[in-house]
Computed example of a mutant assay.
Amino acid sequence: MAEDPQRNFRSIYYEKVGFRGVEEKKSLEILLKDDPLDVEKLCTFSQRFPLPSLYRIHVWKVLLGILPPHAESHLLVMKYRDEQYHDVLHALQVMRYIHEDSPKVEIFLRMYQLETEKLPRQTDITHLEPEDEDFFAIAKAMYEMVKNEVDSYWLIKCFVNQFSHKYGDSLPHLPKSLEYYLSLEDSRLLNHLKSCGAMSKLPYGLWFRKCFAGCLPDSSLQRVWDKLISGSCKILVFVAMEILLSYKIMLLGMSKAESITQFLENMPQENTDAIVSKAVDLWHKHCGTPMHTI
């Protein structure tokens, strides 16, 4: 499809006057009118632009396979998703794994364990495996964003499954990727972190296994997950790097690895939107982005 010169002109105009998101929203609305939906183009859009909040959850559902590309099937499919959710919920209630006052995130974990055949014998949650703690963090963040329990559970389940199956093999290599890209951007900071033994003790679990859930506020986390859900695991590396670069002066003033780790695990929340924006720019710079016609 040839590019529309008028649309290009509008894009430049909106960007100059500070309303770039207006044209992006229109482009997404055009994509969402396709039937069937073009999942590849939706991925491309999500890689290039932040998703408008009005459409974010719907696009996530499509990209995660919760909704099929054919729009006419969406209502019926969500009806089946709702029925499956309540069937699993009822089964756990009968087995007394959950009760009326059980926290939602605990219910989501038990449902996921039952559906993945990992439900433990004990009905009380007395000990969480590391993967359960990761699930808890992601589930808590997703439920805060979405609120609707059925939508939340399906998004959590499919997000966790996609992350595990698609990126599981890449996860152990992300710290090395962070070190490599940081060497390109700021070798002085990298050498300082190495010299005080902090590189091996950075909060990789919080950043990479939990996908920044519990680290970034919702508004910033959603923009990171846009990229992650649409196909880029490396966005996690660039967010981690931009956090280090943003707090460079403070980190250079610390000489103990434990102090650095503690600071990063409890980093201030006021600059996170700017951090994510800069991280996305770095990601574009080093990795490029798909350029299919939107």
Rank of each mutant, 00 (worst) to 15 (best):
E3D: 15
E3P: 06
P5D: 00
P5I: 06
P5C: 06
Q6L: 10
N8D: 10
N8C: 09
F9D: 05
R10F: 15
E15I: 13
G18Q: 13
G18N: 15
F19G: 12
V22A: 07
E23L: 09
L31D: 05
L32S: 01
L32I: 06
P36Q: 03
L37Y: 04
D38S: 02
V39I: 15
E40D: 11
T44N: 11
F45L: 06
S46Y: 01
S46A: 07
F49K: 15
R56H: 05
I66N: 10
P69F: 01
A71I: 14
S73K: 10
H74R: 03
L76Y: 14
K79H: 13
E83A: 14
H86P: 06
V88C: 12
L89Q: 11
L92K: 02
M95P: 04
Y97Q: 03
E100L: 10
D101Q: 07
K104F: 05
V105W: 01
L109K: 00
R110T: 07
T116H: 09
E117V: 04
K118M: 12
L119N: 09
L119T: 05
D124C: 06
I125E: 12
H127G: 12
D132G: 06
E133L: 15
A137G: 11
M142H: 09
Y143M: 05
Y143H: 12
E144W: 03
E144C: 02
M145L: 14
K147I: 07
K147G: 02
E149S: 13
E149K: 06
D151Y: 14
D151W: 09
S152R: 09
L155C: 08
V160K: 01
S164D: 13
H165W: 07
H173R: 11
L182F: 00
E185D: 10
D186Y: 02
L189P: 05
N191Y: 09
H192G: 05
G197W: 03
M199Y: 00
L202A: 10
L202F: 02
P203Y: 00
P203C: 07
Y204R: 00
G214E: 07
L216Y: 01
L216C: 05
S220L: 05
W225M: 07
W225H: 11
K227G: 02
K227D: 06
L228W: 01
L228S: 09
S230P: 05
G231E: 08
S232M: 09
L236M: 00
V237L: 02
V237T: 00
A240F: 00
M241L: 15
I243N: 03
S246W: 13
Y247I: 01
M250R: 11
L251I: 05
L251N: 04
L251C: 06
L252R: 04
L252H: 04
G253V: 03
K256P: 11
K256H: 10
E258P: 01
E258W: 12
F263N: 03
F263M: 02
L264H: 11
L264Y: 07
P268Q: 05
P268C: 04
Q269S: 13
T272Q: 14
I275T: 01
I275R: 02
V280N: 08
W283E: 12
H284Q: 15
K285S: 14
P290W: 10
M291V: 09
H292K: 14
